[in-house]
Design a protein around this nucleic acid. Sequence first.
DNA 1: AGAATAGTGTCTATGAGACAGTATAAA
DNA 2: TTTATACTGTCTCATAGACACTATTCT
Lengths: 253, 253
Amino acid sequence: MSPYDPSAFPPFAVTVDLVVLTVRRHALCALVVRRGESPFQGRWALPGGFVRADESLAAAAARELAEETGLCAHDPAAPQSGAAHLEQLATYGDPERDPRMRVVSVAHLVLAPDLPAPRAGGDANGARWATVEDLLAQDGGPVREDELAAPLAFDHARILADGVERARSKIEYSSLATAFCPPEFTVGELRRVYEAVWGVALDPRNFHRKVTGTPGFLVPSGGTTTRQGGRPAQLFRAGGATVLNPPMLRPEV
Amino acid sequence: MSPYDPSAFPPFAVTVDLVVLTVRRHALCALVVRRGESPFQGRWALPGGFVRADESLAAAAARELAEETGLCAHDPAAPQSGAAHLEQLATYGDPERDPRMRVVSVAHLVLAPDLPAPRAGGDANGARWATVEDLLAQDGGPVREDELAAPLAFDHARILADGVERARSKIEYSSLATAFCPPEFTVGELRRVYEAVWGVALDPRNFHRKVTGTPGFLVPSGGTTTRQGGRPAQLFRAGGATVLNPPMLRPEV
DNA sequence: AGAATAGTGTCTATGAGACAGTATAAA
DNA sequence: TTTATACTGTCTCATAGACACTATTCT
């Protein structure tokens, strides 16, 4: 930190933006809200808002998450099942990213289990889940008739892409894929999470052997379920392990 | 981004702080500058400074780097040998982190080859390389007589620790270890980089077989050198590969 | 000659991936 | 019975790690 005159610094607004990811119907989805005002009025954007004068960045992100979804974020240092995973993603501060003023946005990544329906809470006009594939579709693709054809507001497409890439690589070497699952889940459900996030098909037998053989990844909860059809599957909870060694390997591209 | 009144937002100062790492005499070192004024006057801190009103975060980091070290940072998207690697690390915005005002600092990580000597440029009172081990030594350790015994100013110890951890994990699955090396280097010099950053000893024979067998990691430059003593070693340049597949594996802890 | 570093060959244990085959439910 | 999912066993290939051995320099 250099010496400076504390009263002479460029004025910045600081916001948090949220990349909230979940897996719905075998597809990776992100939470988007419709903008109610200019600029980008009527377009979809990532949820977010100002950091308050007395609150930390993580607290601001957790507050916005609760306002938009009702989700309770838990600290990465103290994980507990049932709450969403929240971590800082990256910070975006291009001078031109907001036409009105100089805004620096600290993006956060949230991994959440599938939710009943996004509640349009707080100051958001409307909120919905959209597949990442739709949100990041390039304009060169087939023209879509629905409202999602327009790209995201601001630089949010870039932020979303960074968040998706972070999620894809993190589930390789950490147990974070369980953050997409309800408190109790089967091996098959966990496998479908990996398949949705990576966009690949995995061998169910090798996957089962791998995840059940990784110490601390999964702990049996005792029950079984048949909600997937077929033979009843054992139910598991997330184990205490956070890093996976050896990692899950994403198949070659 | 929620609707808001653009004229009513809490005032923030935004700075960039730099974690500049290099390998000197088989030890991982970081660049620190001495603070010339209050608070933390006389203590060591990470180099950094204000983001200007019209400059991006990456540009501010590159400018501070050039001011402090004369290093030319290159964009991660367009790597070129001879320049330092610069990437965003994380953002720190605790309300209490600077006693004077609300400051949000976007920390950046720089990996540089060994430099002749840090030049105390710009507004820094003095600059020096210090080993990461010394800078992060806990106060419970043996009392040191020299000036480095005091911990870093602000939350810079935390930032440095995060940067070191990022560097340690990044050289596992990327070719970034070459950013610590001069344009031409031997396999042994590259191995000493890994050993210094990870703080472990590696088998020279397996290391040699591994790095020369990873396509795109190293390209022979044709020359040889005997600067390490012993049999002349082949000289290499960094290859075009950025991700290593399979990765270098850090030995178990 | 001895020491130091560079580089190659070989063996073994481990794990990933392919895939046969069995178990248990619903329609 | 068919179908779907869960789970176990086994084979093969690739690679990490251990380590013997050779090569080439300097002192």
